[in-house]
Computed example of a mutant assay.
Amino acid sequence: MRMMMMNSDNINHSNGNEEQDNLGSNEIEKTKICLMRTFVEAQDPSSKEADDLTLRRFLRARDLDVEKASAMFLKYLKWRRSFVPNGSISPSELKNEIQQNKMFLQGSDKKGRPVGVLLAGRHFQHKGGVDEFKRFIVYIFHKIFARMAPGQEKFLVIGDLEGWGYANCDIRAYLAALSLVQDYFPERLGKLFIVHAPYIFMAAWKIVYPFIDIKTRNKIVFVENKKLKSTLLEEIEESQLPETYGGQLPLIPIQDT
């Protein structure tokens, strides 16, 4: 009995320490958000429109370094004014990308994160070039963000490479998408499952991999075909999983959501 009480005391003490650590971390973040806000608003008054969650994402992306996070955020504001001057991307600017019908959005994972599906075997270079592809990525992000529940900040993507071949290989587009994720939309990607990856894809992967930062690398999971459904079900309920992976939801093109 005495040993059980001692063990119980240890557990309670441990839980208490964790709660204190979490409270301490939250207070540190709040303080640094205030410091960051003061700095960025002095540099760019338009940053007053940004909420604390946005600033926190940039802080976390730079390991709570206020100076680095501020520089990153100010760069983002400058990019947004030039790349998305109207605040959104119109489908009329994405005719070539939308015609490929390669991005889908439906359902949520167990953490409430929206689930997107990218069929990479349908991507081909076109006359719109990398600029249109970058606009398409921003369009995708805005569509996903509009589906997020209050308080949710991240999303999950299933990158399906079935049928992918050298004709689909577009290194410039991959690097452009990576730059958008890491530089302008930090702490948004929750997880990326890469499924049905053919062996020849690894040649492209070796080129792109060095440009992926550690935080993003930790969110990427290559899934074996034989473990596909079981792996996805660890994150997504069957009722929220697309039918093509053994779930119950149809694939809905992102432009129709």
Rank of each mutant, 00 (worst) to 15 (best):
G121Y: 09
V115W: 00
W164Y: 12
Y174F: 12
V157D: 08
V157A: 14
I137H: 03
S179M: 04
D170A: 04
G112P: 01
I171W: 07
R122C: 15
N96D: 15
H126P: 04
L118N: 08
V138I: 11
V115H: 01
R113K: 03
R122V: 11
C169Q: 13
P114Y: 04
L119N: 11
K95F: 13
F141H: 06
I144C: 01
M148L: 10
L180A: 06
A173Q: 09
L118I: 13
K110S: 06
V157G: 09
R122P: 09
H123S: 11
F104V: 01
I158N: 12
F133A: 02
E93H: 06
I140C: 10
M148F: 05
G107E: 01
I158P: 10
I140P: 00
V115L: 15
K95L: 15
G151W: 04
N96A: 14
G107A: 04
Q125V: 02
H142D: 13
S92C: 07
S179R: 02
H123C: 13
K154A: 14
V117G: 08
F141E: 05
V130L: 08
G151R: 01
K154C: 12
R172S: 15
G159R: 05
F145S: 00
D160N: 15
L118H: 06
F104H: 04
A173T: 05
A149H: 06
K102Y: 15
I158C: 14
F124C: 12
L156P: 05
I144S: 01
M148I: 03
V157K: 05
F136L: 04
Y184G: 09
A177F: 06
Y174M: 13
G128C: 08
Y166G: 13
I171K: 07
I171V: 13
D109V: 12
V181F: 07
A177L: 12
K95T: 10
M148W: 03
K95S: 14
L105W: 04
Y139P: 00
S108D: 15
A176T: 07
Q182Y: 02
S92N: 08
Y139D: 01
G128H: 02
F155H: 12
A173H: 08
P114S: 07
F124R: 12
G116S: 15
H123Y: 12
N168V: 05
I98N: 09
D131N: 00
L94D: 07
L118M: 11
L118S: 11
E162G: 12
G116Y: 11
P150F: 10
G165V: 06
P150Q: 07
V115D: 02
F185E: 09
M103L: 15
Q99P: 03
G159I: 08
V157H: 08
A120M: 11
R122N: 15
F185S: 07
I140N: 07
D170H: 02
C169R: 08
V130K: 06
